[in-house]
Computed example of a mutant assay.
Amino acid sequence: MNLRSIDLNLLVVLDALLDEAHVSRAAERLGLSQPAASSALERCRHLFRDPLLKRGRGSMSLTPKAQALRAPVKRLLADVVAVVDPPKIALADLRQRVRIVTSDLPAAIIAAPLHRVLAETAPGLEVVIEPWTGASAALEALETGSADLALSVFPEPDEMFRRETLLHETYVVMMRRDHPAAKNFDLDNWLAYPHVLVSGRGQTRGALDEALAAHGRSRRVAIVVPSFLIVPSLLEGSELIVMLPSRCVPKDSATRFAVFEPPIPVEGFPLHLAWHARRDGDVGVQHVAGIIRASLSAKL
């Protein structure tokens, strides 16, 4: 293919068309007329030998080829911008939205420091913390550009992603301070009472169940909740017991709860910060990433 025959502006229009799945909205976003956007769509269809957008009942949808093009087109345009016009804007002048995908525990740690530091250094940066729906969904969001940073546990990513280990978390067992199992806490007492399991996706088994199975034991999960923030109120006034990350223990736990190390080894987990490689040079995203690093290191 002769690259000189390809109009780079066509890819800019294609990016908007794939995001909006609507010709008029894409035209409005780019400041084009609707006929100009329609003409660009036809040229894209010819270039990629695919309809790209198909009309359905009252709306348009992306073809499989169009879905596959979303991430590569965004990556290509970001690379072009980084080469042709590297960012020179000062932090205080940034006007940008940064989307972070994470679960409730990291969000509770980073939210206040993010707001405080950004108010002082980059008041034009808007942070949106979005709910966690799994590592695969988070990486897909980073790839498509619907998220900028993700904070959780990730497998070793491929070369298009960056993954940085911020800390290593361990588990503790917590129950109300006067719980019967607290007097002589051991494995049998631990398993004699009902447990709370925290799962943002409604899973009924966790790391503890795998560790118990290796010892030929099991527990009874009485309730599954989506957030660690719900746990303290559940434990008070009940015989429920929970195993949770050590950083989820309330600051006033000494007066309210009994906290122990698990009576069998339960492997902890790393907390990773991840982003797409095309965000390496994004000043706003990397500034937010730096605040997150500092926030979590202060909690070590």
Rank of each mutant, 00 (worst) to 15 (best):
M1S: 15
R4L: 12
S5F: 14
L8F: 13
L10H: 03
L14G: 15
H22W: 05
S24G: 14
S33R: 11
Q34D: 14
A37T: 07
L41N: 10
H46F: 12
F48T: 10
R49P: 12
G56R: 13
M60D: 10
L62C: 13
T63W: 11
L69Y: 12
R75T: 13
L76C: 03
V81S: 07
V81E: 14
I89W: 09
I89E: 15
L91N: 10
R97Y: 07
I100A: 00
T102P: 13
I109Y: 05
A119S: 15
T121K: 12
E126I: 02
V127N: 01
A135Y: 09
S136I: 15
A137R: 12
S152I: 08
F154C: 00
E156T: 14
P157L: 00
M160E: 13
E164I: 02
T165I: 09
T170R: 12
T170W: 09
V173F: 07
R177F: 01
L187N: 08
N189H: 14
A192H: 11
Y193R: 09
Y193D: 10
R201W: 13
G202V: 13
G206E: 05
L208Q: 08
A214W: 12
S218K: 06
P226I: 07
S227A: 03
P232R: 01
S238P: 04
R247Y: 03
A254T: 02
F260S: 02
P270Y: 07
H272Q: 09
H276A: 05
G281C: 04
V283M: 06
G284L: 03
V288Q: 03
K299Y: 05
